[in-house]
């Protein structure tokens, strides 16, 4: 490998690394795309795809030492709840409240709906 290719490689890695973090300091992955697909055509598949995006955002944010963006844990919790994975859903809602205390009122209401539903 010549020096030039190494420099180019290094620069391109740098550019990709930077471009995946938004101006607000978050990693959003394919968020808008899988969410748009989900509202256009709600199905088991589009729901699973969006769930995968959310998991990827959480993993990538942890990897890059970033705060997980607002709403991601809550959305994941909501998808898990729809899938009857109530315990996992509750855990995600609690993580969201810990990260963003502003979400407390809203998520507590969702949580009370969940426990009503499982009774």
């Amino acid at each position: 490998m010549t020096k030039k290719t190494i420099v180019i490689l290094f620069l391109s890695v740098l550019i990709t690394a930077c471009s995946s973090v938004s101006p607000g300091g978050y990693y959003w992955g394919k968020y808008s795309y899988t969410y748009h697909a989900l509202i256009k055509e709600p199905s088991t598949e589009s729901r699973a795809n969006h769930q995968e995006t959310l998991l990827n955002i959480i993993a990538e944010s942890q990897e890059q030492n970033l705060r997980v963006p607002p709403g991601i844990h809550a959305e994941l919790g909501n998808l898990l709840a729809l899938n009857n994975q109530t315990d996992a859903a509750v855990a995600e809602f609690e993580t969201e409240v810990k990260l963003y205390p502003e979400s407390k009122v809203f998520l507590e209401r969702l949580l009370s709906g969940l426990s009503k539903g499982s009774e």
Binding site: G24, Y35, P69, G71, E75, S103
Partner: peptide, 27 residues
């Protein structure tokens, strides 16, 4: 409407606000 809806969270969250999860809210 759907296009705008699915692209709103990112800019407002990036600007420093807590945006209630639009997917849950619109449901």
């Amino acid at each position: 409407g759907d296009l705008i809806n699915s692209t709103l969270t990112v800019p407002f969250a990036d600007n420093g606000y807590y945006v209630l999860p639009i997917s849950i809210v619109s449901d």
